[in-house]
């Protein structure tokens, strides 16, 4: 599996990556600090799973989901955010993507993988 983690926090990206690789050492995990880099990476190679932060400088996570799809991305997507308001969760549901609440911990990353259909259990 190939995963793209999009988050403006390097700490968040690094922990998400470490937890995924701990559970799935044979997967590859790429990182992007913003939407522009995520779009550029996804244009070069296909990803199976996208973990996307919502509140990022510039383009936000919701818009990025739409832009990735418009660009032909086929992977399963999850929004991974500290913004846990009901209207935000609803917008994720309307877009047809999973929503996982931060903080980034082994438990929340495992929940993210389960939400995109790649649980370990």
């Amino acid at each position: 599996m190939k995963v793209l983690v999009v988050d403006d926090s390097k700490v968040a990206r690094t922990i998400i990556r470490a937890v995924i690789l701990d559970q799935h050492p044979d997967w590859s995990v790429s990182e992007a600090p913003n939407a522009a880099e995520a779009l550029a990476l996804a244009a070069r190679e296909p990803f199976d799973i996208f973990s996307i932060d919502i509140n990022m400088p510039g383009v936000d996570g919701f818009t990025l989901v739409e832009q990735l799809r418009a660009q032909g991305a086929q992977g399963r997507m999850a929004l991974f955010s500290a913004n846990v308001q009901e209207p935000v969760r609803q917008r994720a549901a309307d877009l047809g993507v999973a929503f996982i609440s931060k903080p980034v911990t082994p438990i929340s990353v495992t929940a993210l993988l389960a939400a995109v259909g790649c649980g370990t259990a």
């Binding site: 926090s9 500290a82 913004n83 846990v84 935000v88 931060k102 903080p103």
Partner: peptide, 27 residues
């Protein structure tokens, strides 16, 4: 900053219920 993000995000969820509208948060 990530910890503050989580804190502000969970406070915004409560505020949003208090005011009956979404609280739009910046980075």
């Amino acid at each position: 900053t990530e910890a503050f993000n989580v804190g502000v995000g969970s406070a915004a969820a409560v505020l949003s219920k208090m005011v009956g509208a979404e609280v739009v948060l910046s980075v």
